[in-house]
Simulated scan of single mutants.
Amino acid sequence: MTEPTQTSPAIDTSVAHPARRYNYWLGGKDNFAADRESADAIEQKFPGMRAGIRANRDVLGRMTRFLAADGGIRQFLDIGTGLPTEDNTHEVAQRVAPDSRVMYVDNDPLVMTHARALLTSTGEGVTDYIEADLRDPQAILAALRQRDTLDLSRPVALMLIAILHFIPGQGEARPIVRQLLDELPSGSYLAATHFTLDFMPEHEQNTYRQMLDSGMSDIWPRDRAEFTTLFDGLEMVDPGIVLVSKWRPQTDDDSVDPSRISIWAGVARKP
């Protein structure tokens, strides 16, 4: 696999980054040796886990289509954008509603470089980008107020897809989600997915916790109970909180072991 040809001085290629590791798992080429080594180390311990990566990517499309078609949402705040691949949020949303407006947020300069080059909007819609970190929600909100991409007086879909599990610590994700949701009006939605150990056998749970303790993984798992607290005060959309492959699937495929997917999903509306 070839290294990306363009890098920024702000990009540390010696340290694995979640967006580039995710890109590698999805079969992309925008990643470095450190990203691949980190991804391979995790996959070696949990063979077959790419099924979960694929399922998470697929549910992003289904959630976005629901929000644009059934929820009537025309504004999307996608935090933890990741490197561009097929059916990005704006592509799915603008396919349903060409006037959809999408703000992407990521903390990897490489993601932003590729986003500005590849994530182009329809003529009717708008696509914009902020380089910021989910761990600083106030900085994200401040940047939003400085742009006219999203109108925060109108409903917004807050997309937190496979990003909250990079916030370590029991109870640490919920305050961040609250700060963001508090700035969004009634009729807005939260769409989130999150890695969990709930479906894994006990020996794999122990193995994963050892990897987390040793620094071999930076993905912090949360159980269903803690993931559910992210939606406190919101109106859950059917089918509620389920495995990503069970969130409004297009086909009933039960061939994949849930322990290989291990990602919770949920969508809810702010009353």
Rank of each mutant, 00 (worst) to 15 (best):
L26W: 04
M112H: 05
V96L: 09
V126R: 13
D198V: 11
L234F: 14
A34D: 04
T207K: 06
P98Q: 06
E235C: 10
V105K: 04
F231E: 07
L212W: 13
P155H: 04
L164F: 05
L119T: 10
L77V: 10
A10D: 14
F227L: 12
E43Y: 03
V105T: 11
F231S: 09
V59W: 05
D198R: 03
E86V: 14
A51D: 14
F195T: 07
R269G: 02
T229M: 12
Q205V: 14
M1P: 03
D58P: 01
R36V: 14
T122K: 14
N56E: 12
F166T: 11
P185L: 10
I11G: 00
Y22M: 08
G71Q: 08
R178K: 15
E91F: 01
Y24G: 00
V15C: 02
L118E: 12
I241T: 12
T122H: 10
G28E: 10
A51S: 14
F227A: 11
Y104T: 03
D87W: 02
E86P: 00
L152R: 12
Q75W: 06
L26D: 02
S259P: 04
R54F: 08
V156R: 09
R178P: 01
A97Y: 02
V126G: 01
N23Q: 11
G80Y: 03
D223M: 09
V177R: 09
R20P: 05
S8Y: 01
S14E: 11
G52Q: 02
N206M: 10
G52V: 05
S255I: 00
T2P: 13
S121E: 10
L190V: 07
E86N: 08
S153G: 13
T81H: 10
A132C: 08
G71R: 04
N31F: 01
F166Y: 15
Y208H: 09
P175N: 13
G52Y: 01
T5P: 00
Q138F: 11
M1E: 07
R21L: 14
Q250E: 15
V177S: 11
D151P: 11
A162R: 05
G71E: 04
A10G: 10
D232F: 12
F32K: 00
S259A: 15
R174Q: 15
F227I: 13
M103Y: 03
I53V: 14
A157H: 08
H114V: 00
M63F: 13
P185H: 08
E202W: 01
T127V: 15
E124S: 14
R101L: 11
T149E: 03
R154K: 15
D133A: 09
D253L: 00
A225C: 00
R209L: 15
A225F: 03
R260F: 00
D198Y: 04
L119S: 01
P221E: 07
S186W: 04
A19M: 09
P249G: 12
Q179I: 09
T113K: 06
F227M: 13
T81K: 09
T122Q: 09
A173I: 06
N107F: 00
A68L: 05
T207P: 01
F227V: 14
E37V: 13
Q170L: 12
E86K: 11
R54A: 07
F166G: 09
D182R: 11
W220A: 15
L118F: 07
L212D: 12
I79L: 12
T120C: 11
D218R: 07
S188I: 06
R20W: 10
G61L: 08
A225P: 00
S38T: 09
